[in-house]
C-alpha cells in the first residue's frame, strides 16, 4: 500500500474549520447577531404588546461538534441556537416567535429570511448565520426543548413545535469514543473527509446531495477506527475505504408502489428525537446517484490502497476529494541516493 497518511494530514489541515483558530470572521458575525438580538428584541416585543423575552444562545451543528469544514465557494455558515424562556402554549404558532427574531434583525444585513427550520441572516461576503429558535425546557411542562418549525404562509400542519435536542445529539454522536481519544480524533477527520467528498462530487442545491448531518450519522454508525495500537499512527485511507464499503453494504432494496420498482436506499436515522431519517427527502433518483458516487469513492480508495507509487495514489485521491488534496512531485516521494554507476553489461 502506498503510504499516503502524510497527505491526508495535509488535506485535513487545509479543509478543517477550526473552532478556535482563524475563523474570527465567523465568531464576530455570531457575536454581532447576538448583540443585535439582545438590543432590538425588547422594542419588537413592546411594539407587539408582548412580554419581553431575553434569549440565551447555544452553539449547534458542526461548529459545536468540531466537525466543520471550509466551504468550497466561501459560503461559510454557523448554526446558533436561540432559546426563549416561553412555553409552546405561550406561542401556539411557532412562526410568530420566528417573525419577532426576523424583525429584530431585519435591515441589519443584506437579507434576513425565515426558513422552515431557522431564521437565516445572510451577509454580503457569503457568510450566513442560521438561527434555530427554541422554546426552552424550563418553560415547558414536560421539561423538553422544542424547535420552532415553519414559514410565514405555510400550512398549519407545517407550523409546529418540534421536540429537538441538538446537545443530546452531539453527546450521542461522540459517546462511542469515550476513552478512545485517537479513535475520536480519526472519527472527526473522517467526517470532514466525507463532507468534503460530498461538496466536491454533488451539486449543492436542494436534496440532491446527502446532507452533512446524514454523513455524520452514517460515519457514527459504520466507521471503525484504524490506527496502530502501539504508535497510534492513523491509517485514514483504510478507515475511509472500510467506511465507504460498510455504507454501500447498508443500502437496502425496498419495493416502492408509486414507482412500481425496487429502490435501493441508505438511511441516516437521527440518534435523538424525532428519530427521523435525515435522507427521507432524497428522491429515488438522488439515492441512485448517491450510491453510484459512493461506489466510485470506494473504488478509488481501493485503487489507492493497491497503488505502489505515492504520487499516483495521491492523484487517485485528488480525483475524489478535490484540489485541496495535494499531489507531491515525484522527487518528494523518493529517497535521495548516492551517485549511481552502471558498468557495461552483456546478456544472451
Amino acid at each position: 500500500m502506498a503510504t499516503v497518511q502524510k497527505y491526508f494530514d495535509l488535506f485535513h489541515d487545509k479543509i478543517k474549520l477550526g473552532r478556535f483558530d482563524e475563523e474570527d470572521t465567523l465568531r464576530d458575525k455570531r457575536r454581532i447577531v447576538r448583540e443585535k438580538l439582545l438590543a432590538n428584541l425588547p422594542g419588537v416585543f413592546e411594539k407587539h404588546k408582548e412580554k419581553n423575552l431575553v434569549p440565551t444562545f447555544r452553539d449547534q451543528g458542526s461548529y459545536a461538534m468540531n466537525t466543520g469544514i471550509k466551504p468550497l465557494e466561501g459560503d461559510f455558515d454557523i448554526d446558533q441556537g436561540v432559546y426563549f424562556e416561553s412555553s409552546v402554549t405561550d406561542y401556539p404558532d411557532p412562526v410568530v416567535l420566528k417573525e419577532r427574531v426576523h424583525e429584530a434583525l431585519d435591515g441589519h444585513t443584506k437579507k434576513v429570511e425565515i426558513r422552515r427550520p431557522c431564521v437565516t441572516v445572510f451577509y454580503q461576503d457569503g457568510y450566513h448565520v442560521d438561527l434555530a429558535v427554541y422554546s426552552c425546557a424550563s418553560a415547558n411542562a414536560d421539561k423538553q426543548d422544542y424547535l420552532a418549525m415553519g414559514k410565514v404562509g405555510s400550512e398549519e400542519k407545517y407550523r409546529v413545535w418540534q421536540l429537538s435536542d441538538p446537545t443530546a445529539l452531539t453527546d450521542k454522536l461522540f459517546e462511542r469514543f469515550d476513552g478512545d481519544d485517537t479513535g475520536r480524533k480519526q472519527y472527526r477527520r473522517v467526517i470532514r473527509f466525507m463532507k468534503r467528498w460530498k461538496d466536491v462530487n454533488f451539486v449543492s442545491s436542494g436534496n440532491g446531495a446527502p446532507r452533512g448531518i446524514g454523513l455524520t450519522v452514517n460515519t457514527h454508525d459504520y466507521f471503525q477506527p484504524n490506527y496502530d495500537a502501539t504508535s497510534f499512527k492513523l491509517d485514514d485511507l483504510t478507515a475511509l475505504r472500510d467506511l465507504a464499503q460498510a455504507m454501500l453494504d447498508a443500502f437496502t432494496s425496498t419495493w416502492v408502489f408509486a414507482e412500481w420498482k425496487f429502490i435501493r436506499r441508505l438511511k441516516a436515522q437521527l440518534l435523538v428525537t424525532p428519530f427521523n431519517d435525515v435522507y427521507e427527502k432524497m428522491t429515488s433518483k438522488q439515492m441512485e446517484t448517491f450510491e453510484a458516487k459512493l461506489q466510485e469513492l470506494c473504488d478509488a480508495l481501493n485503487a489507492a490502497i493497491k497503488e505502489v507509487d505515492t504520487r499516483k495514489a495521491c492523484q487517485l485521491l485528488r480525483n475524489v476529494f478535490g484540489d485541496d488534496f495535494d499531489v507531491p512531485e515525484e522527487s518528494e516521494t523518493a529517497r535521495p541516493t548516492p551517485p549511481p554507476v552502471s558498468t557495461h553489461s552483456q546478456s544472451a
Binding site: A2, T310, S345, S347
Partner: peptide
C-alpha cells in the same frame, strides 16, 4: 534482435516499495 538497457526509478520514502 535482442534489446536491453538500464532501469531508472525511485526508492519511495513513505514505504519500502520502488517504482
Amino acid at each position: 534482435a535482442e534489446a536491453g538497457g538500464v532501469l531508472l526509478g525511485r526508492y519511495l520514502s513513505d514505504s519500502d516499495d520502488l517504482v
